[in-house]
Design a protein around this nucleic acid. Structure first.
Length: 578
RNA sequence: GCGCCCGUAGCUCAACCGGAUAGAGCAACGGCCUUCUAAGCCGUAGGUUACAGGUUCGAGUCCUGUCGGGCGUACCA
């Protein structure tokens, strides 16, 4: 609808240029916006004010001239020039009426468009270390990423989702050692469990399954493991890792390591799946090492003259691309850094043929953006081919008090816990109502409460109400013919308001996709529910004569379709009864 | 110190490439169920958009500075 109006005005501009009345460049796109106030019409256009200066005309005069060249059409009822030079456009009722059959016929594809031109986009999100269950902070990234992927697809992008499994680093070794220590406890050993090893119950569970399957095969003399450890926490863990690797041998240490990883990845996958978040790919960091991708990336950067050696380490000259300092890729001890696998990973993404890569990171990682973009540029890619979207942490409040979280100490509210207490629908909608870069206060008591404060019920209720109306019709055996309705009977202000809202949906989806702001869909669907509830309270659907009844039922059926579509984009269910 | 993000009603948050009179929900107050689900609707009240400048026809939105909050500044992951 907006596009059609934009095209009409573009013809006006072109006409004036051709006639030689004004001498300006043809604008690529004439921007039309929804008005905030009803008496400004349905749409407004500021093109006259933008072109006034280059055309050397007064904005209002130019606006009138543009209107005089507007082509004939059936959409526009009347136009006016207002304020400093706005062109206000009032649409005909027919322009809205014809939407009803369009929506009902399109069904779940209403709102979809081809704005994305099927460009291939890879969206990587969550990517939490598989060293423990997901917490509510990951939930925010998961909800945001998943809805973004759904919105991108609806807007015509070929979007794929991916989870990057950080399974090649020290944290995983610490997890393996934590499991090993719990295993020794199960063998009857007694010692002080390091307080900076992983404390969670899941560590114990993995150890228990090892003990069940292998008995005491992995048992080592306690003194060889925990004897005379360094006092420093980090050194203590590193020493334990070394000893475990030596005592068990590489094969058996890897066995524990992989069991821990697979158990946790599997747990995360199930957890996310129940949160209705599924991934197209699960990408393992360790395959970059074993598959030589890291070496290949380093080689490529070396060939491009961006690597140098200093103090025994290999550095990437990221300062060439605006980073504050150069970064180490290969440490003096020969180990690759996390950054090294990240470089290889992004090289791999583009080698897979994606036009664009989106990374959704926790805001605490913002310091890495420059260096990753630098490495992409160093590999010969356009750095803008990567967009990093930051999700701010949710600060949790319980009983009015801030909840502090630490994965290592095992003190955190898990996503699973939230889901089970709040429900997936409410949790997802709660997250979806906030734009990602906004700091978020997450009130656990409110989210966990089943009260009507939670806006998700408000929207779902609107959908259920419509379904209920149609159920009533069946029960009362009232004939309904939605395909032959006289929409001209829909003259109530509330009906036109509702239609106007329905017409907005495709624009919302497209804007949400283009700006990576899926929260717009959440706000839209709440507004739509509000329009419907207002209508519902003001006018009867069933207890009217047949022609009006059919027209009104067609309208609310179209509303039902859009409510369901928007909820689906948010990954929230649309119940037919509540 | 430097860098990034943020600052909008009492609280939580919106505001469509910069547009006209900044909007919702919650909390407060007052109304609406013999009729399709009251998990609903209608109304009232609530604001110097942190502060000070600047850019222009027009700024919550862009620029500069100040204040306040969060995060980051590793041969950690």
């Amino acid at each position: 609808m907006r596009q059609e109006l934009s095209d009409l005005l573009k013809i006006s501009v072109s006409a004036l240029i051709e006639e030689g009345v004004i001498s300006v460049d043809v604008p690529a796109d004439v921007y039309i916006e929804r008005t905030r106030q009803r008496d400004h019409g349905d749409f407004a256009c500021n093109i006259a004010m933008i072109l006034a200066k280059p055309a050397r005309m007064k904005p209002r005069d130019l606006a009138n001239l543009l209107l005089s060249r507007l082509p004939q059409n059936t959409l526009i009822d009347r136009t006016e020039v207002a304020g400093p030079g706005f062109i206000n456009i009032f649409l005909t009722h027919d322009a809205f009426y014809k939407l009803i059959p369009v929506v009902r016929k399109a069904g779940d594809s209403y709102g979809c468009c081809d704005a994305g031109e099927q460009k291939r986009i890879l969206v990587e999100f969550v990517s939490a270390n598989p060293t423990g269950p997901l917490h509510v902070g990951h939930g925010r990234g998961a909800a945001y990423g998943d809805v973004l992927v759904r919105v991108l697809r609806a807007a015509g992008y070929d979007a794929a989702s991916e989870y990057y499994i950080n399974d090649a680093g020290r944290q995983m070794d610490i997890l393996a050692v934590s499991v090993f220590l719990r295993y020794l406890e199960l063998c009857g050993e007694e010692f002080e469990f390091p307080d900076n090893a992983y404390q969670g119950d899941y560590v114990f569970d993995i150890a228990a399954s090892l003990h069940r399957d292998l008995g005491e095969d992995l048992r080592q003399p306690l003194n060889a493991v925990t004897g005379s450890l360094p006092a420093d926490g980090d050194q203590l863990l590193d020493t334990l890792i070394e000893r475990a690797k030596t005592l068990l041998g590489k094969e058996r240490f890897t066995q524990i390591h992989d069991l821990a990883r697979d158990t946790l990845v599997d747990d995360i996958r199930k957890d996310l799946s129940q949160f209705r978040v599924t991934f197209d790919h699960w990408f393992s960091e360790s395959t970059l090492v074993t598959g030589n991708a890291v070496a290949r990336a380093v080689e490529k950067l070396t060939k491009n003259g961006l690597m140098y050696e200093k103090d025994g380490a290999l550095w990437l000259r990221t300062t060439d691309y605006g980073d504050e300092k150069d970064r180490v890729v290969i440490r003096a001890n020969g180990n690759h850094t996390y950054f090294a696998t990240d470089i290889a990973y992004h090289l791999d993404k583009f080698e897979r043929g994606f036009d664009h890569a989106i990374n959704i990171w926790g805001a605490d990682h913002h310091g890495y953006i420059k260096r990753v973009k630098a490495s992409i540029a160093g590999l010969g890619q356009e750095p803008d081919a990567l967009t990093v979207l930051l999700v701010q942490f949710a600060v949790l409040y319980r009983n009015g008090e801030k909840v502090s979280m630490s994965t290592r100490s095992g003190q955190f509210v898990t996503l699973r816990e939230l889901r089970q207490e709040v429900g997936t629908d409410a949790a997802r909608f709660f997250y979806a109502l906030r734009k990602p870069e906004q700091h978020m206060d997450f009130d656990l008591d409110l989210a966990k409460s089943q009260s009507s404060d939670n806006p998700v019920y408000y929207v779902q209720y609107a959908h259920a109400r419509i379904c209920s109306v149609f159920k009533q019709l069946l029960e009362k055996d009232i004939a309904v013919d939605l395909d032959d309705s006289d929409f001209g009977l829909l003259t109530e202000e509330r009906e036109l308001d509702l239609l106007r809202e329905l017409s907005r949906y495709p624009e919302v989806v497209e804007t949400a996709a283009r700006s990576y702001e899926p929260h717009l869909v959440a706000y839209y669907v709440r507004d739509l529910a509000n329009e419907f509830h207002t209508y519902y309270n003001a006018h009867p659907f069933i207890a009217t004569d047949a022609p009006l009844r059919n027209a009104r039922l067609s309208l609310i059926d179209a509303t039902r379709v859009v409510l369901a579509n928007a909820l689906t984009l948010l990954g929230v269910s649309a119940p037919s009864s509540m």
